[in-house]
Design a protein around this nucleic acid. Structure first.
Lengths: 197, 197, 197, 197
DNA sequence: AATGAATGAGTGTTCATTCAT
DNA sequence: TATGAATGAACACTCATTCAT
């Protein structure tokens, strides 16, 4: 077992999956990209499905590293911003992975690893919201809905960033947190006179 | 050409696509569900791809009906809430369609109809944001990022609602608008002391 | 049973078969060309194969009319020329039929009618050759080979004429007979010094 | 890519095409005859159409080898006889190929290779005829008609030979050339008293 | 550790034919 | 006499996987 060959296959698969999506990706594409014989593929991975899951596992474990638990001794908002920024940075460093995870979540069975991770993160956010409400810092709200909204916002923004260059991830992270915390309304509590859309 | 048969095929395809995803869906599944012979399918649709596109077109045209242009004589916030509510209602009335559109956006080529529509809606939102800023109602912000964030929030929330029963769509729509406009922060402008996540 | 409808179908089939060949011709093409419903086709013909055979029968019976038995009281060469000319005229009047018969003789089973007819004509020619030899008019030769050669020559020439306009069939018929009887050699019996090709 | 397997497939296809014709030939027949799995076929040939074209190309290239340019230093008539003999020999060595090429020229698109080759040979013959006329060796005649007639004669004769055994190809070739050069008429220039057919 | 020829189950699509109206 | 919606057997082609070398 050569670690190099395994690495080449993984890299090739990331590229091919991100470009064509799982179903349109063929083993032929992957081995051609990796410069490896057909049989070699099955020396390292049991199946096409397995190499995808391997890749998804990597993504999840990397995200687990980048999303750090909030340290209560420091300003939590700063830490939320930093967490989001690190996620954005990862997405932009590994655009192919981001594309696989965010744009082509075809089959729930295949992407269960990812879905479960997202569910987990959503739960974390939901718990945080509840804590904030209990502490009187956040408004009373449907935490289950709001948690999903926040996650969805981040996901969609990342997809949008994948095609851009020289993104200021810190700023984007701040904007997102700002949106979540303060909203976009300027004039305080009441917005009865809003005239747009 | 019988409108009934066409309808049965469309209904069957929605069901099968939503349950299995486009690639795992087989013509056999569709025609078995529709209770129709194999040849009949191709009497009404040129290919598996075409029936999917037909379905996506329907979704888009229904969404276009439900998302109404803001009437400047009435409170725009109310109208935004109503628009979102109508979209949520549609998603819950046609859960299968929602699942197809939101969970299995596999292949950009196949789902271009949908992607284009979402791009369009995102642009609408972005324009509204700009107007609001110009009128001094909304805070200065990166409209392109925020528009995506808002769309992403709604999408993710819808996905979350698909498995729930007796959803109060009006309340969810209000919560979403509230999140977008006021944020979740209770204590006014500054949130330096937040202690959560 | 309307004779008109039957005629329309036959005409349509001739056109379609000659343009696309038997296998590429579809019932759809025929009924569209005939301006008749699908079911109507099967009211008049048992199958696609049957309508082809019907057409081939027509060809054969028409050829039987045009190829007249040699009347020994008149110059036989003149009559051979006339026979060939009438065949050429038929081919040019009914180019579609000629194309079906001569260019697309795909399947021996399908075209047995035609093959049998050609075999029959070949036999006729062979018998005539033998008679001519017995009478001392024609050279000793392998009649079976020569008969085929003569038939083949006529067939190929007809195919060549189908794309031409204003063909002088009388002249072509004479040229063919001349070729068969005298050959193309100018200088009598010996041609040892030929210098061409 | 194994040359052997490719060869087995080609041989099998020749057999099947010649027995059933292109349209009635199924991939199943070919692979069963070749003793090879379905997928293997597509490893060597893109499609059913492609393997046919491959076969036709082979035929044409073999014919190009066997039909030699006339060497002006030797007796051209001898060389014409030899050319025809070599073509007859090839047809009898590879009866299957001959059947494919001569009996089942179904679809102009499929058989374009062959048609073009025949057109080419026809042109060659036509040019030779013109030269012969210019040199005063051959009678004035419609070279375009005569060239086709000669080619047609050879084709039809070959078809006739396919079912025979122990054919003396040299003799047949001579008979054909004799027919073309001298005709079958015994009594010199005039044949007004012919009494046959 | 690597190769690549071979496999064969699986699937979308076609099209001649039927039959209820 | 005519219609056209429905049928389903048939077939070309794909591609993940295996295995002898």
């Amino acid at each position: 077992m050569s670690v190099q060959t395994r690495g080449r296959l993984l890299r090739a698969a990331k590229k091919v999956f991100s470009e064509k999506g799982y179903y349109n990706a063929q083993i032929s594409h992957i081995i051609d990209t990796a410069g490896v014989a057909r049989g070699t593929f099955y020396l390292y991975f049991k199946s096409k499905e397995e190499i995808l899951k391997e890749i998804l596992k990597e993504v999840v474990s990397e995200l687990r590293v980048r999303i750090k638990v909030i340290d209560l001794k420091r300003d939590p908002v700063d830490q939320i911003v930093e967490n989001i920024q690190r996620v954005l940075d990862f997405a932009l460093e590994e655009k192919e992975l981001a594309r696989i995870v965010l744009q082509r979540n075809c089959d729930p069975k295949l992407f269960s690893t990812i879905e479960e991770f997202f569910d987990e993160v959503t739960s974390m956010v939901e718990n945080s919201l509840r804590k904030g409400i209990d502490l009187g810092l956040l408004r009373e709200c449907d935490t289950s809905v709001l948690a999903k909204a926040l996650i969805g916002a981040v996901k969609e923004v990342i997809v949008g960033l994948l095609d851009k260059k020289d993104v200021d991830t810190k700023k984007v992270a701040r904007d997102l947190v700002d949106l979540g915390l303060r909203g976009i309304w300027k004039g305080g509590e009441s917005y009865g006179g809003f005239r747009a859309v």
